[in-house]
Structures are given as structure tokens and as C-alpha cells.
């Protein structure tokens, strides 16, 4: 039961992994690509996009599991990463995201790549966020700040800052912007101010406006000052004397 390692078969190929390894990692080791939208190896597994589903035979029964959250904890599993059932389910997942984000370029491209044309009958929502949660998790787990989170539930669920207001806790580092697969968080720099925002027009929600720090040598803006403060605090140095990468 408590063996440190387990051997399993994925698409007919055998592999031995440490107990507790996530199935998606095992697939990766065998160079088997499992498509996913919410998985990010630097973040804790979340298991919500359901795209990385595979079929696992545990001996008694075969079940469909998202490979990103399924831990390997026993010997002799037989895994199938591609089947009619999985392909059909993925098609529906794309359909639903396509209905949610019917005009979002990344989603449209993704659907086209998988050869899925929209079902006209479904309600279109013209959203741009697929709620994969990478931004929220990255902000909490990596930046350690937790400046954004979810508001409401069900179909009304949204990623927002608390009370949809500017959040002084945010350090304007832009991590959420970098991880977002559908580019729905905006980061702009103008007149020495970096703005992190969501939505455009009337709905525009500014998460943070932060002053940029100038380089001690060339005088160009290069770092949001809250980020500099965090670095300075960690390293015990003066936050005003940073030098930009090109002057170093």
C-alpha cells in the first residue's frame, strides 16, 4: 500500500513514478500531450477546465478523471488519454467556452485548432474570461498577495478585485496579465504610471494604478514602485536605487 513508487500504463506504455505524482506529470514524462486550459505547473492543481480528462482503469472500473488533479497512489493503473468519449467531451467543452467567449480571439483560435464550429442554438455571452483561475491562483500562490478573487457564483462568477475597486494590496507586478490565456487583464504604462485593469468602457475596473520607478542610471521608467518596495524589503536595501536591466 505504502510503496514509494507505483507503476502504471499510459496508452500502452509503462512508467514508474513517485507516489502522489499527478497523472498529467506522468503523461508529460512519456511525452504524451494532454491538452489543458487551467493547468499551470507552477501553480497548485485546480481541475476546473476538465480539458485534461483521461480514462483511468483502477481495476474494478474505468472512470473519467482530470489528469491534473488525479494523484497516482496505487499500482497497475491503465490510462487511456484519447478515446471517443474524451474527444466528444472536449468538443462540448470547447462549444461551451465558445458560447461564453464568442468573440474572444484566443478562444476562437483554440476552437478552430480543434476543428469545432459553434452551435448556433447556445446562448452567446460575449465574455473574454474563461475562469481558468490562473490569475487568482498566481496572485495568491506565487506573488503571495491575493489582490484578486472571485465574485458571486455560478454563471455570474467573475474575477474581480474586492468590491470591484482599486486594491492597494496589488503590487502591479503584472503576473496575472502574463498568465492569462485569453488576455483579458490589461496592463498599460503611461506618464510613469502602470495600470492593471479589467474590462473596457463603462465596465472598466481598475485594480491598481502604481507609480513607476526610474532607473538610477538612465532615468527610464522600468519597475512599479510597489514591486521595488517588496524587493527592497526582502533584500534590505534602499527601494529608490534600483538600476534597470539594460544599465546593469
Amino acid at each position: 500500500m505504502n510503496a514509494k513508487e507505483h507503476t502504471l500504463t499510459i496508452d500502452g506504455r509503462s512508467i514508474t513514478v513517485k507516489r502522489g505524482t499527478f497523472l498529467i506529470e506522468a503523461c508529460k514524462k512519456l511525452c504524451i500531450e494532454v491538452p489543458t486550459l487551467c493547468h499551470n505547473e507552477n501553480l497548485k492543481p485546480y481541475g476546473v477546465c476538465r480539458f485534461c480528462q483521461v480514462e483511468v482503469n483502477e481495476g474494478k472500473r474505468t472512470r473519467l478523471v482530470p489528469s491534473c488533479v488525479y494523484e497516482i497512489r496505487k499500482d497497475g493503473l491503465t490510462v487511456t488519454t484519447d478515446s471517443e468519449r474524451i474527444r466528444n467531451n472536449r468538443k462540448w467543452l470547447i462549444q461551451l467556452l465558445l458560447a461564453r467567449c464568442d468573440r474572444q480571439k484566443d478562444v476562437l483560435d483554440f476552437a478552430a485548432k480543434h476543428g469545432v464550429a459553434p452551435i448556433e442554438r447556445l446562448t452567446k455571452k460575449n465574455d473574454d474570461c474563461i475562469l481558468c483561475g490562473q490569475c487568482v491562483r498566481a496572485c495568491g500562490e506565487i506573488v503571495g498577495v491575493g489582490a484578486i478573487g472571485y465574485e458571486r457564483r455560478g454563471e455570474k462568477r467573475e474575477v474581480t478585485s474586492p468590491y470591484r475597486d482599486k486594491n492597494p494590496v496589488c503590487i502591479a507586478c503584472g503576473t496575472c496579465v502574463y498568465v492569462c490565456p485569453t488576455h483579458c487583464i490589461a496592463m498599460t504604462e503611461e506618464n510613469g504610471v502602470r495600470t492593471i485593469s479589467r474590462y473596457a468602457g463603462e465596465k472598466k475596473m481598475i485594480v491598481r494604478e502604481a507609480k513607476m520607478l526610474t532607473c538610477g542610471k538612465c532615468g527610464n521608467y522600468f519597475l512599479p514602485s510597489p514591486v521595488a518596495e517588496v524587493f527592497a524589503k526582502k533584500m534590505g536595501i534602499d527601494p529608490t536605487v534600483f538600476t534597470c536591466p539594460s544599465c546593469r
Binding site: 476546473v48 475562469l131 455560478g154 454563471e155 462568477r157
Partner: peptide, 10 residues
């Protein structure tokens, strides 16, 4: 629905 996973929410 909590809205966390795609099949249930959408």
C-alpha cells in the same frame, strides 16, 4: 452552481 468548473457553470 458555484461556477468553478466549466460543465456545470456553462
Amino acid at each position: 452552481s458555484c461556477g468553478k468548473c466549466v460543465p456545470c457553470r456553462e
